[in-house]
């Protein structure tokens, strides 16, 4: 029935739309209530990690700031003492700020970090109402700790945490 093809095709279209209307499930995520899992390699907001004992991994070396193509990271380091220890080794980051308006989420800071202290997390809910709020400070970026005893600075045994970069066990890692 080639002659009636227009009619048949148009009707087919209507049928398909009606089938979708009746049978197909919606694909919408009801966002604030229902959040979508991000991919494993998703690059979201930065996180400053800690060791298992609560000490910060960041040693204030500023390599991330050097690697940053958008110049979004600012690090200022200070000396550690055994009385007030923030991180293993000599120095820690006393100021750590990331300007989220400049950051392009390239992940170079992650690559540059010698201690794997900074990683790009899975948080994508970044919204601010003025420029000051866009600057994330160290206490906003640090992962929260479980107990009070793990908070930094800690009072530790002398001559234990002398090495700032952990011993590399597997060179390929």
């Amino acid at each position: 029935m080639g002659v009636f093809e227009p009619l048949i095709e148009l009707t087919k279209g209507l049928g398909e739309v009606f089938r979708t209307f009746v049978a197909e499930k919606t694909v919408t995520y009801q966002y604030p209530e229902q959040k979508r899992e991000v991919r494993p390699r998703f690059r979201g907001r930065h996180v400053l990690n800690r060791y298992d004992n609560g000490l910060e991994k960041c040693i204030g070396c500023s390599l991330c700031a050097a690697a940053c193509p958008a110049d979004a990271i600012f690090v200022e380091s200070s000396e550690n003492t055994d009385e007030k220890r923030f991180s293993p080794g000599e120095r820690y980051a006393s100021t750590y700020e990331i300007n989220m308006l400049r950051c392009i989420y390239c992940g170079f800071c992650e690559d540059a970090c010698p201690t794997e202290a900074i990683t790009l997390g899975d948080n994508y809910e970044l919204s601010f109402t003025d420029r000051k709020q866009a600057i994330y400070t160290k206490d906003m970026l640090l992962v929260p700790v479980k107990g009070e005893t793990m908070l930094t600075p800690q009072k530790v045994e002398p001559k234990v945490f002398t090495r700032s970069v952990p011993q590399m066990e597997d060179p390929r890692d």
Binding site: V17, T20, F21, K25, T26, V27, T28
Partner: peptide, 10 residues
């Protein structure tokens, strides 16, 4: 609402 439903939206 109806149009959204036909386009697999809410």
């Amino acid at each position: 609402r109806a149009l959204a439903r036909m386009q697999v939206r809410v």
